[in-house]
Design a protein around this nucleic acid. Structure first.
Lengths: 356, 356
DNA sequence: TTGTATGCGTTATCAC
DNA sequence: GTGATAACGCATACAA
């Protein structure tokens, strides 16, 4: 029954359930039950079956199973596409965390990239509508769409991570961007800062709205006007953080009343900004204090060490998986539309009181 | 025939080939041919079928297809598992590059993690033997193994990336570690350096052997003895690059005759080493020159900017995919066992002539 | 508790 | 050039 050519005694793959059944002396259906369900079968025959399966090195064919039960056990993660992700240096950690959680629950992780190319978008749609995946975790504020169809129309459970897309009906796992950056700004104000430069990712983007909003709230609470903060950036995506930081130096230099503190919305921006501003002869934190967002490990080793807001990405990954699998399993207890995992401000030497 | 409940006019997923056939007024088998093969079917009926498929939003069921043809179109990438990958900050780029190449050829990318936990190893084996994946790209020098079975026994095409595993029979895509680091060391010697500290990943590891070998070759060629270089590290994996760099500072300080140049085997090691050595009052490149390996974008923004050997990871990714798909398609022209993509030394201000 | 029979959605082998 | 029909490997309804 095993179709494989026995290549010189080499153990090829491909033992089937039928092979196991024959070796154990039972029917195929009995093998199926024994391997899947906990009870339902005599202990002695179960033992025979397990032994036979082990002896043959039997591994169930996932595609046959998936076809039969009408569902796959693969989850897709949709990552923002770009030459490199450096921006948030967190993707590998997220992948690690999500994959680990999924494996423990018996799921696989497939990755998809969402750049603006049609082939990528079509690929995602095919995955969604072709029954290949059972659910998706998305890392982007926009879903792919072709011919007016988006993965959301597939009936596939989707959860958003990092971006709050609860308005669009997607359960979202986010961090408290607004609050965290408000706290950081408050800390700067407390240190005596009164003029700020805010370095932004794409304008209007969820994170921009939240984070900039947090800055403004802190200013108000501190009795300062919105005039106290200047904006830089706004055109480039987060992926181009280093470039954004470099450009921000130009913006900074042009300002009549120079800010004494910089709030960057990603570590990359802060790192390149700090590098170039120091080269221009200014000192950190002597002339300028800097705080940023992401919590990349590398920040600890900048000179001076960079204060940053650390996103608990592993915890967020676990939460996203939890939410997604709840939806996948149709657990009817309504899934939370918004799960907030708190970020943590790590204070390092890049922040000090302004001179004078 | 479509089993889906038409929820209030909402277009649910799930048009089948049978649905398309009925709408186009042909048999299922004709639809199958029309959608798959180039010729083989009348142009007019093909047009009708395509129209029907589009109208219904038909997407072929990948699992059914896979089951029927006996092969999947999913490739698995096996990543080294660890709390975070930071070490070589290259994983996201690699993933991006590999995924893009695969999609263009009609394949999907699944990720698997290889940590030392049994659940992970078993997962990889299941993927390999369960017919879920068609081939694998591995990023680790050791294959998972359970009950004496490894993915290599599955008959699955596997290619190794970064590590040269051609000895184990795996086609490998690597960079010219040895030559690149020899070149870097030669550059240091040319600048006048005579005493070196080499910061290592795991001792005996492929990269360690190659890179350290490159250092020794350069020393010999420069008329220096092996005594000219001291080693630090050797216990921790590359993932713990920052920690390795920190420990290297201690080793450095203990040396009677202090090296004037440091060769780090990853950017992370160099970054944390530099940070801590500067804090200890030494200057780079005044007292110590530093060069490292990886080519992370962040190196440009260190102070001083860090010289590093840039691995062309995207090109390596493309090459790995090419090799793998050649094997998958049974293209009988023997696949190259070792493909070398050349690294490039990026000279920056972390290197200068030693004092005196 | 176990065996028999059917079908998941597709491709491939036949006839026509 | 097109249409029936039989697998692919497994899970389940039902019969025994």
């Amino acid at each position: 029954m095993n179709k494989n050519k026995d290549v010189a005694g080499e153990e090829q793959s491909g033992a089937l359930m039928a092979d196991v059944a024959r070796l154990a002396g039972v029917a195929i259906s009995t093998v199926s039950r024994a391997l899947a369900n906990p009870g339902r079968v005599n202990e002695k025959t179960r033992a025979r079956i397990n032994a036979a399966a082990k002896q043959l090195g039997y591994t169930p064919n996932a595609m046959a199973r998936g076809l039969r039960v009408g569902k796959s056990n693969t989850i897709m993660i949709i990552l923002p596409g770009s030459p490199y992700y450096g921006a948030s240096q967190i993707i590998p950690q997220v992948l690690q965390s999500i994959n680990k959680s999924l494996i423990q629950q018996g799921y696989n992780l497939m990755i998809a990239n969402l750049d603006r190319e049609e082939v990528s978008e079509r690929h995602i749609l095919d995955l969604a509508f072709g029954g290949t995946v059972r659910g998706a975790i998305i890392f982007s504020s926009k879903l792919p769409e072709i011919d007016g169809r988006s993965p959301a129309d597939s009936g596939l459970p989707i959860v958003s991570m990092l971006f709050d897309m609860s308005d669009a009906g997607l359960p979202s796992v986010v961090t408290n961007d607004r609050e965290a950056i408000r706290e950081a700004t408050t800390e700067l104000i407390r240190s005596g800062h009164r003029r700020f430069l805010y370095i932004a990712g794409p304008t209007g983007n969820y994170h921009d709205v939240e984070r900039y909003g947090g800055v403004l709230e802190a200013l108000r609470a501190g009795g300062l006007s919105e005039e106290a903060v200047s904006r830089s950036g706004g055109e480039l995506e987060y992926q181009h953080g280093f470039e954004i930081g470099i450009r921000a130096v130009d913006d900074f230099m042009k300002l009549a009343a120079r800010p004494t503190a910089v709030i960057a919305t990603s570590d990359d921006m802060a790192i390149s900004f700090m590098s170039r501003i120091q080269r221009a002869g200014l000192s950190v934190p002597g002339d300028i204090s800097i705080v940023s967002f992401d919590g990349s490990p590398v920040c600890e080793f900048c000179s001076p060490p960079l204060s940053t807001i650390e996103q608990p990405v592993e915890e967020m990954g676990r939460a996203a998986v939890g939410l997604l699998l709840d939806a996948v399993r149709q657990t009817e207890n309504a899934v939370a539309m918004r799960t907030i995992i708190r970020s943590r401000l790590i204070l390092r030497e890049s922040i000090a009181s302004p001179k004078g």
